[in-house]
Amino acid sequence: MNSRRISYFEASARARVAALADAGSFREYCPPAERRTSPHLARLDAPVAFDDGVVVGSATVDGRPVLIAAQEGRFNGGAVGEVHGAKIRGLLERAAREKPAAVLLLVDSGGVRLHEANAGLIAISEIMRALMAAQAAGVPVFAFVGGSCGAFGGMGIVTRLCDEVIMSEEGRLGLSGPEVIETVKGVGEFDSRDRALVWRVTGGKLRRALGEATRLVDDDARDFRAAAIAALSNHRRAPADLADLKAAQAALARRRSAHPETRDGLEVWRALGLPQPEAVPMLSSDAFNRQLHELSAEA
């Protein structure tokens, strides 16, 4: 049965950690038995989880020490509350001190948990600072996005702070979810029920094509692990000094002018010169990566 694909999209946070880490190497901090549940959910009479929807701990990946946080998208949409956020922040602070080979953030979150919205918003800001402090201490942080909630809201920002962003096509990355935009701005702005459009605007292939995702893999936890191992040996570094950030600023401005009216990923495929823009959604990640590589080789 080992040859069977393990759908990362469907796997629980714990199953993802198990699939990414070397067998038996994971040690959890603040494990469920400690019952660090959310007092705020309880006060609102909502169900709580023993791990508050995030698993944090240490492990090895291909023998290299890492710290891992994995959000459980099925518990309240992976949303960040006080305890949940504090666990991720604490892990990043541990990283700055212990200097593992990397921190792996398995993001699966719609952003702030509304039941404790203020605590969640602040927690995300604390995660952002702790993440950049870990990077400043020389520890790279890799984000993995391929769950049903994607990486949205503040966790969409956190994801883009990471040195590497590894996504599957099923993964989505953005700030405001399509449902929110549709509710406020109307269905003409964003039809959230047009699922194919949603993925063309936020999905893994678009993010890879725009260079936001550094690696695109198929929806298989074993592929995510392979990407993690590859990133551990050779990874992109997030821009950090003045020169880097000036270059990043120029690149972001260039992107806006390169796609002046674009509102659909299809136009991005066309603008990039992919041979069959309409066929892109059905390409395997390998085939898509190959096409992108060929384009960049031509350019």
Binding site: S12, P32, V48, A49, F50, E72, R74
Partner: peptide, 18 residues
């Protein structure tokens, strides 16, 4: 050993055995 199964989501549950 301590074990946890399931996820707290609609129509589901988590079971912690200690």
């Amino acid at each position: 050993q301590t074990a946890l199964a399931g996820v707290v989501s609609s129509g589901n549950l988590e079971v912690l055995v200690e």
